[in-house]
């Protein structure tokens, strides 16, 4: 009687210990991970203007940022006297599939006050809105942000380039795809001025 009770006790203690140790281990690993993430230097590699960068899914080279009065690359100045921020860049699709998610490539960081959050991407070849990037066919693209009326145009623009990594089988559907979007480089470009006619 007492022997079996003791055996039961031992079993209970050992299983509790196992669970406890496992839990502690998991806790240690996750806290270690978040600690590492917190320790990771927030400094991104600097990207010089005109230098091509492989960002996983895309290959990108930033050229010139400037202030303009045109809402599109070839149009006349916007009638309401609005100002726009234009950025020239080369983008290539390094994936194996036609892609229309190029709006994710760039973010303005720190954000500029009065800058429209979602810019328009223009395909310079057509002077028309860019709707897809074909694999292996890099294009010259102009990104145009509208500036809110009265907003102070920035002196310089800091752009963070996002990269993504390819997974041949994702965890949910076992389908190939691009995941883990994260900043991989930053470029600071001077914003060239154009004469604003009165």
């Amino acid at each position: 009687m007492i022997v079996s009770w003791l055996a039961g006790l031992r079993q209970a203690i050992s299983s509790k210990l196992t669970i406890g140790i496992g839990g502690l281990l998991a806790l240690a690993i996750t806290s270690g991970q978040s600690l590492l993430e917190a320790l990771e230097p927030p400094v991104l590699p600097a990207l010089a203007a005109g230098t091509p960068l492989d960002a996983g899914r895309w290959r990108i080279a930033l050229h010139e940022a400037r202030l303009t009065t045109q809402s599109r690359p070839d149009g006349p100045p916007a009638p309401d006297g609005a100002q726009f921020l234009a950025l020239d860049l080369d983008v290539g699709n390094r994936s194996s599939e036609t892609d229309n998610t190029f709006a994710r490539i760039l973010i303005v960081d720190p954000p500029v006050e009065g800058l429209q959050p979602s810019p328009t991407f223009w395909l310079m070849r057509d002077k028309a809105m860019l709707s897809a990037l074909q694999p292996g066919l890099p294009e010259r693209v102009q990104v145009i942000w509208r500036l809110a009326p009265g907003a102070k145009p920035p002196e310089r623009l800091r752009l963070v380039v996002n990269g993504e990594t390819f997974k041949p089988r994702d965890n949910l559907l076992a389908a190939p795809g691009w995941f883990n979007r994260k900043p991989i480089a930053a470029a600071t470009l001077p914003v060239a001025r154009v004469e604003v006619k009165p």
Binding site: A128, P135, G136
Partner: peptide, 11 residues
């Protein structure tokens, strides 16, 4: 032949 998929051009 290399396996890349080109969607019909939207241009």
């Amino acid at each position: 032949a290399q396996g890349a998929r080109f969607v019909a051009s939207p241009r």
